[in-house]
Amino acid sequence: MHCAPQVRFKLRFMNHTNTQVDEYLHNLREWQDELKHLRRILLTCPLTEEFKWRSPCYTSEKKNIVILGGFKDSCVLSFFKGSLLKDPEGILTKPGENTREGRVIRFTSVCEIAELEPTLRAYIDEAIEAEKAGLTVGLKEDRELKYPEELLAELDESPELKIAFESLTPGRQRAYLMFFNAAKQSKTKTARIEKYRERILDGKGINDCTCGLSQKMPQCDGSHNSLK
Score class of each variant (00 low, 15 high):
201 L>R: 14
209 C>Q: 01
182 A>F: 03
172 R>K: 15
116 L>T: 02
159 P>C: 07
144 E>A: 10
140 K>A: 09
134 G>H: 03
190 T>A: 13
156 D>R: 11
172 R>H: 04
167 S>Q: 11
120 L>E: 08
207 N>A: 07
158 S>L: 05
117 E>N: 08
148 P>L: 08
125 D>T: 06
142 D>S: 14
157 E>V: 00
157 E>N: 14
209 C>W: 05
180 F>H: 05
112 E>K: 13
112 E>H: 07
152 L>P: 00
117 E>A: 10
138 G>R: 09
206 I>M: 05
177 L>V: 15
146 K>A: 12
206 I>S: 02
206 I>C: 01
201 L>P: 09
112 E>I: 04
184 K>A: 12
176 Y>I: 10
167 S>A: 15
200 I>K: 01
184 K>R: 13
126 E>G: 05
205 G>I: 09
207 N>F: 02
145 L>N: 10
204 K>E: 01
162 K>Q: 15
178 M>R: 13
133 A>T: 00
147 Y>H: 15
134 G>M: 03
162 K>V: 00
179 F>R: 14
189 K>D: 03
167 S>G: 12
185 Q>M: 11
189 K>T: 04
144 E>W: 01
190 T>M: 11
141 E>Y: 05
139 L>W: 03
154 E>W: 04
122 A>S: 15
208 D>L: 04
116 L>S: 06
191 A>L: 08
157 E>K: 14
146 K>E: 11
124 I>L: 06
121 R>K: 12
172 R>C: 04
173 Q>S: 12
193 I>Q: 02
156 D>A: 12
117 E>S: 13
125 D>F: 05
169 T>Q: 08
204 K>S: 04
154 E>F: 05
115 E>Y: 04
196 Y>L: 02
208 D>C: 06
188 T>G: 07
176 Y>P: 06
200 I>M: 15
199 R>N: 05
198 E>S: 09
199 R>F: 03
112 E>S: 13
213 L>A: 15
176 Y>V: 04
210 T>E: 09
173 Q>E: 11
174 R>Y: 14
196 Y>F: 15
137 V>A: 12
210 T>W: 03
188 T>R: 07
153 A>E: 12
130 A>D: 15
201 L>M: 13
